[in-house]
Design a binder for these strands. Structure first.
Lengths: 383, 383
DNA sequence: CTGTTAGCGCATTCAA
DNA sequence: TTGAATGCGCTAACAG
């Protein structure tokens, strides 16, 4: 949008000057050793009371002294050191395309919620859709020795599927898909767990969304409202989610006995794209009474195109159903009916899957979508 | 919304069975030691070539052998161990209310972008607005020995300000504000850095948004369009952001010589709240030709209230300006004019501030907002 | 230029 | 029940 430079001002306030109390060595924090010393016990004993390993086998006397010492020193255990010693980390990694995208934001929120219940911390990496970064972050997360990694990102159908160990000995992997697979294999070989959200074609445990049945459900709902002339506004052909949704819609139509050849207009996942696609669709097929749009962003554009460009009333003349239930769907006018994806749930399930013992073959958890009917859908005209 | 239970299906696929290659000890990963051994050099040498400490002072011979060994073993350094040894971590913490909220999502995205440039990883914690969790996560992040922490969260004006070290020796802190301050002090005492995004009243380095001047700018723009009867729909009185925005608007009005007593309607930050507030506002002051709404969510409601409940045309009869430039602002009808907050920028600046050497007194970086004019604003009627 | 050694903060045997 | 000793993977002096 506008490119006006933002200014930045420095303000230094004099009030509230900080009073630092460099209690411990300036180096790090308080150590268990220091706590033990203050309590007059051995390191081992302090460790036992503070980190329930040799659980309750410490005398009340010493136990109390250690606890007091820890409190007064504001001791907090050193998680990385702990992880090193017991070789098991308490952090999991999450790789997304973009945290600012509500789709991934919801996934992240779900994962973090579940993480909290398990007392795990989450390290997030955003690739901003650069596929090279995905491999790089996988390495970084591996370097951090995270316990497990969630790979959230809509896959493309073009990705190479198998061949985890086909590369020759000293050969560098070529395709980015290969590299990814190798990195994943290495992480798993070290005992790390990986799960994907959304189909990735890699042999991973995955949490998938029921895109097919979601689209099918929307189609059936429209059919029941009397719509017989449906159209679809789809996104890029190489996205697996798009492919699945489209497939689901087509199958449902066929099952309902619709005339073959439902019109489909493609566009990118943008509002403008949706708007143009809607215009094309209705110009080519003026009889259309309902359109299924494969993303809410495009649906926002479809609503605009229908009402403003073509002067059609929604839902009186044309009904619209979107996909995703983005936060703004309810703010559109009319409020958008849409297929809600259980994104938070997906994040939670992914984390849960991560913590379960590893199965022999990759598992897939498929989460159902939910059709949310709002003001943008109504009975077919003349019914 | 609807509470239909989501089903979950397990599907086990037989294709793509994974071929694990437990190369290293099942325990952890490949160690530097192993690399050194394979290369036939000492641990120190391997360390030098792989982690540029004693930079380029290794012979080409050995260097090559080590690099080959590392590659063939798929060696990745153990970051926590490294951090322990050199006592300096490469991860920063970020505490937000909710990652799924676009406001925080944008901040997080900015921070992560900057982190990437510095080769840092970001550990995120979401408090889901439970203030107790904030303190808890601060502790967890401290336990993880992160290098620094970004505290992003709209503060409330009611928070206790100073008193970092006022509590008596053995006394437990009472208010949650005190606890927070103590936790922060402890982290800083260990050499950690903390910066806040948004005013928090704690004596921290902070990145602030120019809420006052943003609101003032919006008011002036409306004034120039001929509007003389302005109204404000504000949010909860105890949020500092709301207070600042309101203050900015009032000052601007006064400076322009507006009649005292601009009507202000309060509501919570929701769409419904905004809708109701708009109706109240225009019922009480029917002459109003422009309304400044202190958040986009409420603005969406105001748009609905004005047009649907009151039958007023926007912007022909009433102009509307929101605040935040939420992603959906452009999807509203009419597209919403709004004051854009430089959220990503704030995240970046925060990280940058974190890496700068600590100053004697807390610094504040104030980021300017930007007025984005779209279709919801027009000249005052009759001009 | 290269190797040896001594920690970093903690968990965990193994004795006492 | 408690303490001393060893090692987790790595860096950083310190010697050659």
């Amino acid at each position: 949008m506008a490119g006006k430079a933002l200014s930045k001002r420095y303000v230094t306030r004099m009030e509230n000057r900080r009073s630092r109390t460099r209690s411990a060595r300036a180096g790090g924090g308080v150590t268990l050793q220091q706590v033990a010393q203050l309590a007059g016990v051995s390191l081992a004993t302090a460790s036992r009371v503070l980190h329930g390993s040799g659980a309750r086998n410490v005398g009340d006397q010493l136990r109390g002294r250690v606890e007091d010492a820890a409190r007064s020193l504001r001791y907090v255990s050193n998680a990385p050191a702990q992880a090193l010693a017991r070789s098991s980390s308490s952090v999991v990694g999450l790789i997304v395309h973009d945290v600012a995208d509500p789709y991934f934001g919801a996934i992240a929120a779900g994962a973090m919620q579940a993480a909290r219940e398990q007392e795990l911390m989450v390290m997030i990496a955003a690739t901003f859709r650069e596929s090279g970064l995905e491999v790089q972050y996988l390495r970084s997360l591996r370097a951090q020795r995270v316990r497990a990694i969630i790979l959230a990102g809509s896959g493309t159908t073009g990705i190479s599927t198998g061949g985890i160990s086909t590369a020759g000995a000293g050969t560098d992997p070529v395709g980015t898909g290969e590299e990814l697979a190798e990195e994943i294999a290495a992480f798993e070989a070290e005992g790390g767990r990986v799960v994907a959200i959304g189909e990735r074609g890699l042999g991973l445990d995955t949490v998938a969304m029921a895109n097919r049945s979601g689209a099918a459900g929307a189609v059936r709902a429209l059919w029941e409202l009397g719509h017989r002339e449906l159209g679809v506004v789809a996104g890029p052909a190489d996205l697996t989610t798009v492919a699945h949704r489209l497939d689901g819609a087509r199958r449902a139509l066929r099952a309902l006995g619709a005339a073959a050849g439902t019109p489909v207009e493609r566009s990118d996942f943008s509002q403008e794209g949706g708007r143009a696609a809607a215009v094309r669709l209705l110009r080519a097929h003026p009889g259309t009474t309902a359109v299924l749009v494969l993303s809410d962003a495009m649906a926002a554009g479809v609503l605009a195109g229908l009402q403003e460009d073509l002067g059609l009333a929604v839902p009186e003349q044309v009904s619209v159903v979107g996909f995703n239930d983005a936060p703004y769907a309810v703010n559109l006018r009319p409020a958008l009916s849409t297929v809600r994806l259980p994104l938070e749930r997906a994040g939670q399930e992914a984390l849960r899957l991560l913590l379960e013992p590893e199965a022999d073959e990759p598992r897939t958890v498929e989460l159902d979508t939910e059709l949310v009917l709002r003001a943008s859908t109504g009975p077919a005209p003349g019914r």
